[in-house]
Amino acid sequence: MIERFNELRNTALLVSVFVIAGCGGGDGGGADAGAADAAPAESPVDAATAGNVAGMVTFSGAAPMMAEINMGSEATCAAKHSTTPTEEGFVGGENGGLANVFVYVKEGLESLSFPTPTAAVVLNQDGCMYRPHVLGVQVGQDIAIRNSDGLLHNINASPTENRGFNVSQPVDMETNRSFPVAEVMVPVRCDVHGWMNSYIGIVDHPYFAVSASDGSVSLDGLPPGDYVIEAWHEQLGTMTSNVTVTTGGTTEISFEFTEVMAGSPVPMGEPIDLLHPDGHQAVDH
C-alpha cells in the first residue's frame, strides 16, 4: 500500500516538474527576438535580374473630414504642434494622392526566404503622435519604439496572429519588440492618449512600402515574375492588383480608392469596442 502510494507520488511529482518546466518562459511576439540565427545570409534575389514596381495610390470622391485632436489633457504635447493636429484616419495629399497606404507583395514570393534585417525600424512617439502612422517590418525584425515626449505613454498592440503586448514608457526611452508571424495589420494604440494610434504591417519579405503624402509608392528589387500586390488602408479597406515584373524594368501600378469604400471592414486585429460592437468604425471623438 505504501509502495503503491510512493510510486503514485513520485510519478505525480515528475509530471508536475515537467509541467512547470514546460510552462516557464514563453517566447514569440516578444522582446528582443531580433537577430537572425546565423550570420546575415545573402539575399536570395539576384540584383542583376531584378525589376521594380512603382506607382500612385489615389483617392477619388469627397474626402472624409478628419476631426481636430484635442490635446488639452497633455499640454506638453499640445505645445509641440504649431497647428492643431488632426486625426490621421484619412490623409489625402495634393492631386488626389492617398497617404499611409500599406502596399506589399501578397503572393508570388512563396519560394524564397529572406534574411531578417539586423537594423531596427523606429516607431516614434513625438508630440503625442505616432511617427510614422503606418509602418512595415519584416518578420523577426526589431521595432524600436521610442518615447520622445518625456511623459507616460503606453504601447498597446492587438494582433490576431501574433502575441500582443501592452507596455508603458514613463520617460524618454526606447523599447524593442518584434513579431514572429506575418500579419497585416497590427493596430497599436496608446491608452493614455486616446487619439494615438498606428498600424504595423509584418511581412516575411522586404517588399513593402507605405505611400507618401503625394500617394507615391515603389517596391524595388523584385525578382522577375508574377505577383499579387495588395494595398491596405485603415478606413477604405484593401485592393489588390496583379503585376508582372520584368528584368531591369519598372512596372507601373496604381490603386484608386474611392469614396464608397469608406467604412469597409478592414482586416486586422481589433481592440474590444463596447460602444461599437458591430465592428471597428471610424473614430468619432
Binding site: 518562459g25 516578444g30 498597446n156 503586448f165 501592452n166 508603458s168 474590444i272
Partner: peptide
C-alpha cells in the same frame, strides 16, 4: 514570464483581469 506577474489587484476584478489588452 513575458508581460510580467498579475497586475489587476489581488481582487483581480473583471474585465480588467481578463485580457492583457487591458493590463499588459
Amino acid at each position: 514570464v513575458e508581460g510580467g506577474a498579475a497586475g489587476a489587484g489581488w481582487t483581480s476584478y473583471a474585465p480588467l483581469s481578463v485580457s492583457g489588452e487591458w493590463t499588459g
